[in-house]
Design a protein around this nucleic acid. Sequence first.
DNA 1: GCAAATAGTTGTATTATACAACTATGAAAC
DNA 2: GTTTCATAGTTGTATAATACAACTATTTGC
Lengths: 151, 151
Amino acid sequence: MLSIIVELSKAVRCCRQDEVFCEGVTLNQFVILDAVSRGRKLNMASLHDVLAVDKSTTTRLATPLITRGLVVREKAAHDSRAAVLRLTKNGERVHGEVWQCLLSFLRSIEGQLPEGERAAVFDGIRTFLGALRKASLMRCGAGAGSCGCAG
Amino acid sequence: MLSIIVELSKAVRCCRQDEVFCEGVTLNQFVILDAVSRGRKLNMASLHDVLAVDKSTTTRLATPLITRGLVVREKAAHDSRAAVLRLTKNGERVHGEVWQCLLSFLRSIEGQLPEGERAAVFDGIRTFLGALRKASLMRCGAGAGSCGCAG
DNA sequence: GCAAATAGTTGTATTATACAACTATGAAAC
DNA sequence: GTTTCATAGTTGTATAATACAACTATTTGC
C-alpha cells in the first residue's frame, strides 16, 4: 500500500512540472491554457482553485504564458482588483497543437489498458485519490495522535 | 483522462516531499529509512535506484538523516568508493514510530475503499502507472512526432 | 602498468512553492 | 456617506528538490 503511494510519486514525476511537453509548453502550463480555453476567459481566482496552489504561485505560473503572448491579463469588470485571463490567437493555436500531442500520449496509455477494464481502472483511481485526499485532510485536523506527530 | 493525471499530480502533493509527516520526518525520508531498515544496510547505489533520482540528489536527501543521527554512512567493504548506510538505534526507533503513524494513515485510506474492490483498485492503479511510465519512455524516444515537439 | 570507467561528493543553476508584506479596491458596519 | 475591515493579486524572500557539470579517489579492463 505504501509502495503504491511511492510509485504514484515517481510516476507523476515523469510528467515533470518543469519539463517541456510540446511546443515549449509544460504539462502544467497546458493545464492553465486549457482552463482558460474552456471558459473563453478565466478569473485568476478560478485559476487559483484549479491549480490548488498559493495565490502568489498562481501569479508566477501564469506569468511566463503572458510573457510569451499566449495569454493576456485584463481587468475584471466586476472588481478592479481582480484579473481575467484570456487566450491570444497564438495561445489558441498552441493550445490546439499541444492538445493533439497530448491526445496521442493519452491514447498510448489507454491502448495499454485492457479494453474491458478501462472504466474500472479510472474509477478505481478516482476512488483511491478521493480516499487519499480525505485521509490527508483528516490528518491535518487530528493534530497529535497517539504518536509524537509534530505535524 | 487528462484530468486523471492532473488529479494524480495534485493528490500526490498532499504527501508533499518536504512536508513533515511525523517525528520530524518527511514521507520521502521515511522511504529512505525504510529502505535502509529492510536490508539492515543499504548501498548508496541501491538507494539511488530506490529513489530514482540523480546521484547527487541521493546524497543530498540522505544527508539530513545522517546529520540527525538516524543513519550512519560507512565505507563499503567491497569498494572504497562506495558507501553503506545503516540505521542507528535512534533511527530504528524513529522508523518504527513513523511506521505506526503511517499505518493508521494507510488504514484510513483503505477503510474508505469498498471492501471487495480493494485489490482491484490497487491492481488498476499499478496497471495505469505502468502504462503511464511506458508511454513516457516511448515519448522520449520518439522525438518529433507529427507536431512541433521541441521535447 | 596505464587508460577508461565509476562511486559519490560538491558547485551551481533552475523551478515550484509558500509565507510575509504590500497596495488598491471592495464589502461591511455605523 | 464615512470609516474600518477584508480581499485580489503582486512582489520580496526563503526553502527544498532536482539535475548537470566538475572533481577526486578508486576500480575495472586491457
